[in-house]
């Protein structure tokens, strides 16, 4: 076992970050924090710079995690509750409507294994690129998402929907915060994308995936995503974080063991790679 003084992080990361006000907005109401082991983006809303303040408050509650080996979900729970309280107080004292989304990923450790702790409130997004496939991890807290889940809206029409910008949960703004959490075993080679909707409203998943796949350097990937979104119109504030897992403790995935041992199931490795049992079930063996 490693010495307590020289323990490596459960996930060693490299990262890049880029943010821009965009081409049409006057101020950047996005805020972000990108420093191991915490990577979060907050997209503020509310007039008279209230959104800018709200997103900055939300992110500030995560600064205490910078430099830790690993972040405990319970600490994140407390940070989110405190952020919700501080933003609500701001709303109460200034009588302005202010709120913010918050999503991102933190490094955590479970039974000596490196895990991604993903958190989400609102419609900013966290994605994971693994084995060439881009998967959206966070689930938007939005009217559109609720309609999609209820089967009342065709995904192709979502970008045209009049309520496409309405979110159902936020920090502050009188909404319930009610964050969602994910705990995902990290694998060597994982690339995480955390972004505000300024990116995803401009670029489709395929384009995002190909840029993330083409550009090995995380900072260059973040900058490319940002620039391409600006070329596409840049109609909103944009923030992009790209985080790469360069070493993962306890990662016994086929990927970590090297390509030569990857079985024929490589193509579906992000699905469950459990091997079906044959020929008899255990219940039959009992008799």
């Amino acid at each position: 076992m490693a010495s307590a003084l020289h323990q490596t992080a459960p996930i060693e990361v490299r990262w890049g970050a880029a943010t821009d006000t965009g081409r049409t907005r006057a101020i950047n109401e996005d805020a972000f924090l990108a420093d191991a082991p915490v990577f979060v983006v907050a997209d503020g809303m509310g007039g008279h710079e209230a959104g800018e303040v709200a997103s900055a408050i939300a992110v500030s509650w995560f600064e205490a995690f910078v430099g830790l080996r690993s972040v405990d979900p319970a600490q994140v729970r407390v940070a989110l509750a405190e952020a919700q309280r501080e933003i609500s107080q701001l709303v109460a004292t200034t009588e302005r409507s202010a709120g913010t989304t918050l999503t991102g990923v933190m490094v955590t450790e479970i039974e000596s294994r490196g895990y991604w702790l993903v958190v989400n409130v609102g419609d900013s997004r966290t994605y994971r690129l693994a084995h060439g496939a881009l998967t959206q991890i966070s689930v938007d807290h939005s009217v559109i998402q609720e309609l999609l889940e209820a089967g009342e809206l065709d995904a192709r029409l979502a970008s045209q929907h009049p309520q496409r910008n309405v979110i159902t949960r936020a920090l502050g703004a009188g909404d319930p915060a009610d964050p969602d959490f994910w705990l995902l075993p990290a694998e060597l080679g994982d690339r995480i994308l955390v972004c505000s909707d300024g990116l995803t409203n401009e670029l489709g998943d395929d384009r995002i995936r190909s840029i993330l796949t083409d550009e090995p350097d995380p900072n260059a990937a973040a900058v490319r995503l940002l620039r391409e979104s600006l070329l596409h119109g840049g109609r909103d504030n944009l923030t992009v974080l790209v985080i790469d897992a360069v070493s993962v403790s306890g990662d016994d995935s086929d990927f970590a063991r090297g390509f030569d041992t990857v079985p024929v199931t490589f193509a579906r490795m992000d699905a469950d790679d459990t091997i079906p049992r044959t020929p008899r079930s255990r219940t039959e063996q009992e008799h």
Partner: peptide, 9 residues
């Protein structure tokens, strides 16, 4: 390799 998906705090 257990994981937790979209759970409340």
């Amino acid at each position: 390799r257990p994981q937790a998906l979209r759970v409340a705090p």
